[in-house]
Every structure is written in structure tokens, then in C-alpha cells.
Design a protein around this nucleic acid. Sequence first.
RNA 1: GGCCCCGUAGCUCAGUUGGAUAGAGCAACUGCCUUCUAAGCAGUAGGUCUCAGGUUCGAAUCCUGACGGGGUCGCCA
Length: 586
Amino acid sequence: MNIFALFERRIADVLARLTKAGALPDDLDFSRVVVEPPRDATHGDLSTNAAMVLAKAAKLNPRALADLIAAELKNDPSVVEVDVAGPGFINLTLRDELFYDVLRAIVLDPENYGRGGVAGAGAVNVEYVSANPTGPMHVGHARGAVFGDALAGLLAFAGYPLSKEYYINDAGAQVDVLARSAYLRYREALGEDIGAIPEGLYPGDYLKPVGEKLAETHSTALLGKPEAEWLATVRDTAINAMMDMIRDDLAALNIRHDVFFSERSLAQGKTDEIAATIADLRDRGLIYEGRLPPPKGQPADDWEDREQTLFKATEFGDDVDRPLLKSDGSYTYFASDIAYHYSKFQRGFATMIDVWGADHGGYIKRMQAAVAAVSQGKAELDVKICQLVRLLRNGEQVKMSKRAGEFVTLRDVVDEVGRDAVRFMMLFRKNDAPLDFDLAKVLEQSKDNPVFYVQYAHARCASVFRQAAEGIATLNAAPEALATADYTILADSAERDILRQLAAYPRLIEGAAKSHEPHRIAFFLYELASAFHSLWNKGKDLPQLRFVKLDDVPSTMARLAFVRAVRSVLASGLNILGVTAPEEMR
RNA sequence: GGCCCCGUAGCUCAGUUGGAUAGAGCAACUGCCUUCUAAGCAGUAGGUCUCAGGUUCGAAUCCUGACGGGGUCGCCA
């Protein structure tokens, strides 16, 4: 149950009644009317801007219109008080029973509280990670991986049909380099002294097992042959091995994609889908042979003016038209990416979300242009850019040297601090802001560490139930029993505040899902945890606020329902973010 | 030089898509442990939302311009 959605409907009803009665013109646009919590809680429980938004079109003074609407809302049985304030805000104070209803709803069905707020929405495709299959994942990949996964979890929870995809960049020059690197390891596995790994090949030890596997499968059959004869075989083996490794790395973060889509398969299937996509666009006059102006500003010394095959990205808001073929006639990365996104559209996704690293910012416009073109404007692409992560240990930056083939792998970090810390901290910041990740700090068991702080609040809730069960032999803490408790005892300001936070959860989910911002959940959980810790502490000075009172079962039952609800919402949010909700902290 | 992102308390950051007197956490200062877990809590102090215009009932939020920081700029992926 979502009280904000509830009152959006009730206010819409009021507006409809006023329209019918002739008090409002009948062509008003209600879409800007919102119901939200007032910034200042002393103003009430709900606030609506209806009067201010509609005043102009209704040719009424905002305050006068607010009074009109307020008079109607006073008849609502769940409303205690209606105030018109400021420039025309309508503030509602709700009966406590409404919040008790919320409490009951959570206790009776904790799994589904806040779920499905956007029911009936179209399917969404979330593409994330998409690290090149040329080595293990390093820590730089972690943020996009966690962000994409949490966003997917959030959208699924909110009610969107969803596909989580990984685009395997298994075409292009880099996988040939991978193949050559693996071939070297193959020769090494057969006993040859290969010396130092030449410049331009991947030096990492992680290719040794691939060489050994090749030696096992092919024995000496590939030795001494020209590259053309072994390249494809070695490449496929190496890519498969790399993808197995990447899947393992992702599993360490509890990330599992629904679809792994191969770039190579686009051009290698029965039909060349890249060619087909280009042909489609050409038929619609969106492809032409032409020349591009050289880059402005800093002169490119290797610039060579030549005629090439171009996509009219400028027709869809991009700055320049974009080439589809390299000078050797092969497809550019962009060309296959167009075909890939076309495939998403053909598979029924009108909403696509791509999660990219900060260095791909310049690529957004052309991809959005491409999606608009291939879908004829029927699909939309949102690109979420994850800014860089600075890895620290006690405030000192941890250096990464890619050159020597040494980099901090994602696995190293997860092994050191655990999955929960990595996931939560990566989400405790907006995706488009840079992030410092301190390996020492996230292991601290203190309030300075948000992961711990939130998990501890959940563990404390569990602890209350253990205490209650120990102290009251006859206790029945089943949901049905908790749901019938008398909640009127929950009258302290701290308790009332938390009840309002719990009531705001469905609205939070909806907003976070619609704006593609999972970090909002992390911050909400932090605030809820903080409020709960605070209430817990209040019980030290004020014994009447303690959750468990051995001599007062009715009040204990009400408090247990309350704690159960807090715990369920904490667990629900943590679950969406993919962070565990522990019973106790050890 | 073009384009994209960012600029909010001393520091690190939120700010519910345009709402009311801009909020947290660190750090600083003052308190609180015979207590349902002090692994914590309460309080004080801290602001020209980088600057200048504009849009309107109303701007940290939207538009324009400047300044500062980062990213990126045909035939890499």
C-alpha cells in the first residue's frame, strides 16, 4: 500500500468533481500535480502542489483554488486536518490508523511491500559490465557491474519485465591479440622457452591455463602452422576461457546475467545482421558516402581525408555523422553496436539502459541517435555513466599498473573486504559522481561505515525478537498475531517518524526506478537505520519506549510488529541492492 | 577549439526531477555506559548552493554566458 499513490487518486477525484461542478475548466492538465511528503514534517504528512500548478489555467488565485480543494479533502475520512499554506500548498495530516494499516500490510506480506509500483510497464533491457573478454575483471569494472545489477534488481522489484545483458566484444583486433597471446602460452606449455612477452601482447599469467588447455586438446598439431590456420581455433578457446573467468568474477559479486550476447555472432549467423541493419538504414536514406571534416582544435597529424560510409547521426541530434566501415572495409565498433541495439528493439525492448564507464561519455549521443533511427523513434536508450573509482587503503591511493600486467583484480577486492561492502559502497554515491573506495574503512565496525551501520540495524531488529522469545515463554510472534496488536502505543515522535519513513518506501522505489537511480535506496536505508538506532538509544533513558517489556505483552506485541516492519523494509532494500541482511553481526 | 559530466558547510556527499526556513556523515566542541548490544546515542557550531543574467507564483534544481575541475574528440573497443 502506497499512501502517496492513494492520495494522488483521491485528489484526482476531487479535481474531477470540481470540474464536473463547473468550478474548474474541463480541459485542465493534471499531469504536474504531485503528492509528496512536505519538506518540514511539522506541516503534516502529505503535501500537494495542485492549486499552484492549476491556478493559472483555471484563472484562479492559487490560495483561493487551494481553499476550494481543501474544503473537499476535509470530507475524506482518513484526513484529520487540511491546511493551506505558503503560496498555495495544501497540507494534509492523516489519521494514525492509516499508518497502522501500512504497518499491518508490511507485517502480513513483507516480501511484496513496495513491489510492483509500475505494474503494466514495458520491458526493459539493462546492459552492463560488457568488459572485453581479454582478461580478468579489475576493480574498475566493479562499479558498473554493481550499479547495473542493482538497477536491474530495482526495476524488477518495481515491476518492469527485465532482461540483464552482457555484450561480449569478441570481434575486432583485441581478440586476435588475445589469440596470439594465448598461442604463445600454448608453445610455452609444450616446453618452449618463450622468453619475455613481446610488447603489444597480453602478458598476464592468467593465460597460462589457456595455453595448457590448448596443448592438451591439440597436442603439437598447431605448432609451426601459419597464423591463419590456428587463429580462429585459439581465439575461440581463449575467449571461452576468459568468459568463464569473467562469469566467475561476477559470481563473486553475485551477479548473473540473463543473456550473453556475442558481437561476433551478429556478422557470423545465417545472415550478416550488421549488413542487414545498414541496408535498412540505407533504404531510409540515413546512410551515405561522404567526407568528414577533420577534428577541430588540436590538429590530428595522421588525419587523412577520405570518402567513407557514414550514418546520418546528425539527423538525430549528434554532432557529426559517424563512420560505419574502417579503411580496410571491416565494420567499425559502432556499426555492430547499431545492429546489436537493433536486435534489442526487435526482441521487444522499447526501453534500453546501457551502463558505461566514464571514458565512453562521448559515445552517448551517437548511440542514442542510432537507437532512434533503427526503432524509428519507438525506442529509447538511457545511458548511465559510472565515474571512476579511486581505490584507497587508509586514505592512501592504491596504485594500479596495467603495463606490467598487474592490476588490482575485482576478485582481490572482493576477497579482501567481502561482497556486501563492495556492493553497498559502490551504490552509496550517485553513479555520475566519482567515488573513493577505502579498503580499510569498509571493514570498520563503526557508524563511520555505512555498510555496517545499515546491516547492524537489521541485526538489532533480529536481536529484539531473540530477546522477546527468551523473556516471554508464551510469545506468539507470528505475522497474524502481530497484525492484530493494538498499535496506538506507538505514539512517540521517534516511532511516528519511522512509521512515516516506512510509508514512504513504495514511493521511493517508484521514484528510484523511474529515474534509474539505485543510490536513492542506499541513502534511504541509511536514514532508516539511523532513525532506528536513535529510537533504540532513546529506550535507555525512557524505559517505556523499550521494545520488549516482559510484564506488558500487548505493548510488546505492538512494538514487535513495528520492529518487524523496520526489519522487513531494511531487508527489502538491502535485497534489492544485493547486500545480505544479517541476523547478527559477528 | 567542439561536445559530455561535475562545482552545495573546513572535508566527503544527499537534496524525492521546480516547492515552503538547503540537509546528513566526518572533523571540532559539550554530554551520555549497574541499560532490549556504547559496534551506539543526544546536543552545539558551521552556508553568498562557484559567479552574472534570464524564465515564473517559486530556482541548488530549467535556459544563456563566464570561471574552475575531470573526461572525450574518424579508420580503438
